[in-house]
Nucleic acid binder design. Structure first.
Lengths: 353, 353
DNA sequence: CCACTCAGAACAAACGATTGCGCACACGGA
DNA sequence: TCCGTGTGCGCAATCGTTTGTTCTGAGTGG
């Protein structure tokens, strides 16, 4: 199979890419005519014969419009930016995948930018330097980045907040209340009434929402929420383990079930429970928000509530493109309903007392 | 100062972004002079006073060069593309993170493209349409995509193959032989001599390399490799579980240790071992290639060999930028050495016979 | 037979930068 | 006084498109 692979180093292999004027020349028309035909605009008055000639020439040359030149002229790059705080987080990875899918389908490219930490508004402006190369931005930021949002708004850059609701900005986020409700409904249906909550990041939008959801769902079932049953676990395994340990050490009456705000913290909690000699779900049931491959790797496999991370990215991209193309800056917030309960082995009937 | 800045027709919230000619006007110089000063080129003959005036004007206006215009003129977008087959795979996520880090540090943006499946060369060309918006491409593709590579080479697009070595192309990949060696050394030092291999994707570059590494490392220790001890597991948990089961069912003498080609398949194998009533590491040790958070979530926690996925993305970006800026198309392959053994609970001394 | 209309296509001006070249002016030596 | 020489900057072309405007005939009604 020796034939094709041959890769010259010297002669600057970059083939001259045909331009519009090449096409126009070959078809013996003006570039403007060629442009109109190739852009396929309706209502253009071009004779069929001419049109065919241009299309043939373009095809023969393998012409592709130069996006850069087009962007300069039209002031539209057909590129979306997505800024995420962490690339390794599966939730953001999924969101990126969703955004990429929609972007590609709509003819947009996706530029990705990693926003290490909470960025000082200053940095936000620095990032803005890059922003004239995108038509809009998907901002999947973690917390009090009002400055960031304001910088964007001020600069007139269309953007949508992802993974949280930002008042006044178009936002696409997860419906944490509904998600918590699904989890609690499940536990209650199994007979649980004393249900603890391993909360997520304090101050984070999702963390707050899930905590609120836990409370509201309990209330809906006529269960008074016991503040003692909340422990902040963050979103790491060690955080989950530590929080579970703290909870067990602190409470008088052990809860019969736990709602963990994140999958990974639930996995950590499982470790603590195992070490404490408690059976899951025999002694205590565990359910986590967010589904993922990890749920099947732990022992026992975790019952979860699937959350639409991919769809969140996709919906964000849709909304952003709508803003860009429609021109209207909507400030509507979209809450994506949970995908449903994924029942596995970590939940079971409440133990008899 | 009414003259220069007047842009939007409607109220058009998008703030008028200052252009070079705005700066030039404010500093009362020609745009060419402003350009030379702002680009900071050496050897330009500009009076200090003039330079200061221009810098002040740019600063006052908050001027940022328009990357699109610059790209059009210079035929360089300062954008890298990265094509990955799966966005949800932590390895690729890490590679993207690494590439993004380097790209950002070097003043490049990163465009990400998801290549669903093996892409017919046709599709490869379609993607090329987007390619004149990047200066080069990081191609993290899975397998026999020689057509893709050739399409790129033919189009003269600088690219580097990521996560595999592609003959004739600049490649950055993991040193699977060395990684397997680290794992086997560890097991052998614990007294293991009958070591099975849960292989990765058949036909994949990494899968092949790890299999070869397993063989070579055994040989280095004077252990004859037993072909019976290889089972193809792929890179999923269920694949790992099934392969482990098949292996146990098939072999006469049970191996005392297993080298899994991937972290997730190792996790699957753990499940099978647990169900089979075998103790890990009491009856059998397990070590996986690639480290990650999952390793600490499973029971027992997995001993792994850390593989530099982030560094791979970074090195790929470095190489690509070097190609772009240096002009020379190197075809060198870089193999990244493993990060080392991460010893956890899944490996222990070989059981007495 | 003559203006008039309108289809079909060319002209030309942007978009915002970069860059080769040329034009002044000041200075120094003959 | 005059002619290099060289510094400091402006002129203008260009990158590849898009798009408003103008031009040219051919067809038409009066």
């Amino acid at each position: 199979m020796a034939p094709a692979a041959r890769r010259a180093a010297r002669p600057a292999p970059r083939a001259a890419v045909p331009t519009l004027s090449d096409v126009a020349a070959k078809a013996a028309v003006d570039v403007s005519t060629a442009s109109r035909v190739l852009r396929g605009e309706q209502g253009q008055r071009v004779r069929d014969e001419t049109r065919a000639r241009i299309l043939a020439a373009a095809d023969a040359l393998g012409y592709r419009a130069n996006p850069v030149a087009r962007a300069l002229r039209t002031a539209r790059t057909h590129t979306l930016g997505i800024a995420v705080p962490q690339l390794d987080n599966p939730v953001f990875a999924a969101a990126i995948a969703g955004a990429e899918r929609v972007a590609a389908a709509r003819g947009y490219a996706l530029l990705i930018s990693h926003l290490e930490d909470a960025l000082p508004a200053k940095d936000a402006y620095a990032r803005l330097a890059q922003l004239n190369r995108v038509d809009g931005l998907l901002a999947a930021t973690l917390e009090e980045d009002a400055p960031f949002a304001e910088a964007l708004a001020e600069a007139g850059v269309p953007f949508v907040a992802l993974n949280r609701v930002l008042p006044g900005a178009c936002s696409v986020a997860l419906d944490n209340l509904a998600a918590a409700r699904v989890a609690i409904d499940h536990l209650v249906s199994l007979g649980h009434r004393r249900i603890a909550h391993l909360a997520g990041r304090v101050g984070g939008w999702n963390g707050q929402g899930r905590l609120a959801g836990w409370r509201a769902a309990l209330k809906a079932h006529g269960i008074r929420h016991d503040p003692e049953l909340v422990e902040h676990a963050g979103y790491t395994a060690s955080g989950g383990a530590a929080a579970m340990a703290a909870l067990l050490a602190r409470v008088r009456t052990r809860p019969t079930a736990v709602l963990a705000a994140t999958l990974v913290s639930a996995a950590g909690a499982l470790r603590t429970l195992r070490q404490a000699g408690l059976a899951v779900p025999g002694d205590i049931s565990v359910v986590a928000l967010h589904d993922g491959p990890v749920a099947e790797l732990v022992e026992p496999q975790l019952t979860t509530v699937a959350l639409p991370a991919e769809a969140m990215g996709a919906a964000g991209a849709e909304a952003l493109i709508a803003m860009i193309e429609g021109g209207a800056t909507s400030a509507a917030a979209t809450l994506l309903p949970p995908g449903g309960l994924v029942r596995r082995a970590s939940t079971g009937p409440a133990p008899e007392r």
